[in-house]
Design a protein around this nucleic acid. Structure first.
Length: 479
RNA sequence: UCCUCCUUAGCUCAGUUGGUUAGAGCACCUGACUGUUAAUCAGGGUGUCCUAGGUUCAAGUCCUAGAGGAGGAGCCA
């Protein structure tokens, strides 16, 4: 008999029909005459209730059914007599596809800590929290592609292995087929990459931006959505060594268009989540309330769905770095020296505490900071006429901090080449990038969105390791 | 990489100023119950108190080192 997915089954009202459901047992409970099994198949966060009347045939089966077991159940779709659900399935035939020995199966019908589940990442999909996150994550992947496709963008597969070591976005993972126990050396006594697979030193990409720029300067509107690797020894709730990044790049576009695009995209995908992931968001909202119930009222975060609507209903605040410094310099925590790093002059990079003050205390909504000092930003950013600042734009979100980093790009050959020299970027390995400024250069802009940071915000989770299935962080590459 | 905190039963956690045989809930097993909603009720046994040293008459508790984990900072998305 053809399987009905639980998501569809719960919408049906053709009571009396024979149905088949397959899934994994969440809980089993019961009395002498009747047992109830909550079955989940991942199609929705909701379970279907199986009702099993005790009989000589059923009894030995029920003894083998515990939390975690996989079942195929055929029975009658029935209007539920209980109060927790509208429909249920009265089982007439149960096949145990896979048992789960309760002495060994680590998941119980109770609350587990996120840390415990992180160590059971192969099984944590079977929990409400992680299945909800997985479904929302999928919806966001789809929504991002839809957003760009609907606006005429082309998706670009930027390379994962790169021969350029000048992307300037952090420490890189080396890619090599050399025998690490017997590394061939050149005359200088260093590793001889000429004998390596590509004949040169190669790494995993830290950004698809430079390649996206090449594509944008022909296709006008492109975006990448791929894995990104940073070998930084970062141990925080918002950094991963392997994460996914969305990087749109648009020709004939300045920093203001870039900010509009970033704000439109974020609002579009948040709206998409509210429209398509209601059950999962409601569950995660309750989870968050429960997790924070012991916190003081002023330390609790805004209710999840309210927070998402709040972002939709408000324009992001757009201010320059210089204006931000003014605000921070005059702020209470700065005057009372409550910041760990007191703001006293122009030019210093903003610390997390400053960004959080601007977003969470001063403006109380997402903030886009622009026009940073050129010294603290990357070489490729468009230089302003003041000679001091560049057209960078960072989108800051509450709790998450920087969710997007972007800029208008320097399209003038001379200015770009000069800046590269100043910052010791080797021109010879970047000749292809510079050539785009030699031949038909145009103003263009783009940004990078950290996908997992978006999912953190949408799900209300606190640790980025819980919004990617198999997190890679320093000293952790299990699974 | 730096700072702070944590590690006790399969899971979540309690364990007093160092003092007898280390506890609870859940899970599991047995029994009760005519429909439950993380069912309920009664009973059952479960420990390398992270590891290695040390102090002490006595260490889960104090000290040192190490391992693992978490939070914050930096780097950034």
């Amino acid at each position: 008999m053809k399987r009905t997915e639980i998501k569809d089954l719960l919408e049906r009202a053709d009571f009396g029909s024979k149905v088949n459901v397959k899934g994994w047992v969440r809980t089993k409970r019961g009395s002498k005459n009747v047992s109830f099994i909550a079955l989940n198949d991942g199609s929705t966060i909701k379970n279907v209730q199986l009702v099993v009347e005790m009989s000589p045939a059923m009894e030995p089966l029920l003894e083998k059914i515990h939390t975690g077991a996989a079942l195929s159940v055929t029975g009658d779709l029935t209007e539920s007599m209980g109060s927790g659900q509208k429909v249920e399935v009265h089982a007439t035939d149960i096949e145990i596809l896979g048992v789960a020995n309760p002495n060994d199966y680590p998941l119980q019908p109770k609350k587990h800590s996120l840390e415990f589940l992180r160590e059971k990442a192969h099984l944590r999909y079977r929990t409400n929290t992680f299945s909800a996150i997985a479904r929302i994550r999928h919806a966001m992947i789809f929504a991002i592609h839809k957003f760009f496709n609907d606006r005429g963008f082309y998706n670009i597969h930027s390379p994962i292995i790169t021969g350029s070591d000048a992307e300037g976005a952090g420490e890189m993972f080396q890619v090599t087929t050399l025998d690490l126990n017997n590394i061939p050396k050149n005359e200088e006594g260093k590793a001889d990459f000429q004998t390596d697979f590509f004949g040169k030193a190669t790494n995993l990409t830290v950004s698809g931006q430079l390649e996206a720029e090449l594509a944008a300067l022909a296709l006008s509107k492109v975006y990448t959505f791929g894995p990104t690797f940073r070998a930084e020894n970062s141990n925080t709730t918002r950094h991963l060594a392997e994460f996914w990044m969305i990087e749109p790049e648009v020709a004939f576009c300045d920093i203001n268009d870039d900010m509009d695009l970033a704000e439109d995209m974020l609002k579009y995908v948040i709206r998409y989540a509210l429209d398509n992931c209601k059950d999962d968001l409601e569950f995660l909202s309750k989870r968050l309330l429960d997790e924070e119930k012991n916190k003081k009222a002023d330390e609790r975060s805004m209710e999840l769905i309210e927070k998402l609507n709040f972002v939709l209903d408000n324009d992001f605040e757009r201010i320059t770095y210089t204006e931000a410094i003014q605000i921070l310099r005059n702020s209470k925590p700065n005057k009372k020296k409550r910041f760990q790093f007191v703001i006293d002059g122009w030019g210093a990079d903003l610390q997390s505490e400053h960004e959080r003050y601007l977003v969470e205390k001063h403006f109380k909504k997402p903030v886009i900071l622009t026009d940073y000092p050129k010294e603290i930003k990357a070489f490729y950013m468009k230089q302003n006429d003041d000679g001091k600042t560049v057209r960078a734009m960072d989108v800051l979100f509450p709790q998450i901090g920087e969710i997007i980093g972007g800029s208008q790009r320097e399209e003038e050959y001379d200015k770009l080449a000069t800046r590269m020299k100043e910052m010791d970027i080797p021109e010879e390995s970047m000749w292809w990038y510079l050539e785009t400024r030699k031949f038909g250069t145009v103003p263009h802009a783009g940004f990078g969105l950290g996908f997992e940071r978006l999912i953190l915000f949408l799900t209300g989770m606190g640790n980025i390791r819980d919004v990617i299935p198999f997190p890679r962080t320093p000293l952790n590459c299990e699974f």
